[in-house]
Design a protein around this nucleic acid. Structure first.
Lengths: 231, 231
DNA sequence: ACCTGAACACCGTTCAAGT
DNA sequence: ACCTGAACACCGTTCAAGT
């Protein structure tokens, strides 16, 4: 019953020497996201890693949404870069789509972020490049927007799936995860309720996401060809 | 400085008369989600609406994720119903896709839910119907899964966009929202950085989401036709 | 068995106080 | 101007106590 004193034992930490900046904050956020996943990124954890207080971060980013958006933009800019080679733009578009897929797969939280807020700059950047590479493809003007949107939907769909895959089962290997998914299917409804799903299930194990994504891209490209000069 | 008594003034509420059930909990959750959006659904609000304690809900749903999944399944089942007419399955597939689009548009939180957890039963139901309606379309066996996945990506992409549209600007009308989006575009990068986006921007105002979605579906269908019997 | 509601363990965000 | 870290206003979830 002593120590009723006002002077706290713990003195304040010394002040940071090097200035904080949006750049280092965003980069550190990416590091945390990559290393420990989406749920590990809290302002407290981020502040601790940067040896500062949580409130300090708000001098450089206005809130968590903006921080995540900035992190996503940072990564996406790496694949929407200076751009085109001299390939036919159909091939370049295919390459862009696969580059986007690859960066999402390498950073699963990015998939969640892109599909959570599809109007954010990172998504716009992707959409922009898609539109640019579509330009030389002889698409009727009134269809350009719709076609670009279809490609974007393909990206967003794949993003959602990548995010979910690693979110549900962060530490399971691929086989175990798929095992779990198919088990869940059977649980919700018997084989007779979901015949197609059960027919497909065995293929999941030796199944290549990336190849599947590429097949979808080819389907869209074939659709354009068919629509623009039908036989 | 009186009333140091242990007996609290507020006595416990009387017990519910009618039993709680998963069914009424899920339906009430849907009501809240439809009326006031995703952020309005908390266990406290839900419990209050049902005149019970928050803890009671856990006797019927295991957690919030499962509750949202159940709500989504409930709505999706309405459009994946008993199924097919006698139409050609290409037309039936188109109809399914548009029905799914419509239910997502009518319940924007559903779009968020479907794309947040693409392995949940509600998504599987959609995937199942897609696969079934694809069956008669002469698709090589090894492509069936990939093609179904492309259609599913189209749904998930549209789901993400619908969710974002009403999440960012719940009370803005369409024109004001699009105004805001395009303003954000220009803010992030000048006209010269995003030429395609700025070219497209004016079209946004008088732009039909549903029609755009349908065009994407047609593109995929045309792609199938081209892939299965090229000219 | 089911319900009640306070308590717990977290969040993002704010803000007075320091430098 | 920027940083600090406690405080605030919320969450989802748990659990002892009631019926």
């Amino acid at each position: 019953m002593s120590k009723k004193d006002g002077s706290k034992d713990a003195r304040r930490s010394p002040r940071r020497r090097d200035a904080l900046s949006k750049r280092v904050i965003v980069q550190t956020a990416i590091d945390i996201l990559d290393a420990d996943g989406e749920e590990a990124l809290t302002f407290r954890a981020l502040a601790a890693r940067l040896s500062t207080g949580a409130g300090a971060l708000y001098h450089h980013v206005s809130n968590k949404d903006q921080l995540l958006a900035a992190a996503a933009t940072n990564l996406v800019e790496r694949v929407t870069g200076p751009a085109p080679s001299s390939d036919s733009s159909e091939a370049t578009l295919r390459t862009l789509m696969l580059d986007v897929f690859d960066v999402i797969r390498a950073h699963p939280w990015l998939g969640a972020q892109l599909s959570r807020a599809p109007w954010q700059p990172a998504d716009l950047l992707i959409f922009e490049r898609i539109g640019e590479l579509l330009a030389p493809l002889q698409i009727p003007d009134e269809m350009r927007f719709d076609v670009a949107s279809a490609f974007m939907n393909h990206v967003l769909g794949a993003a959602a799936q990548q995010a979910a895959g690693t979110c549900i089962a962060p530490n399971l290997d691929r086989a175990a995860f798929l095992e779990k998914v198919t088990a869940g299917w059977t649980a919700h409804a018997g084989r007779d309720q979901l015949p197609f799903v059960h027919e497909i299930a065995p293929q999941l194990a030796h199944h290549d996401d990336r190849q599947q994504f590429a097949t979808g891209v080819n389907l869209l490209l074939a659709g354009i060809a068919a629509a623009t000069h039908p036989c």
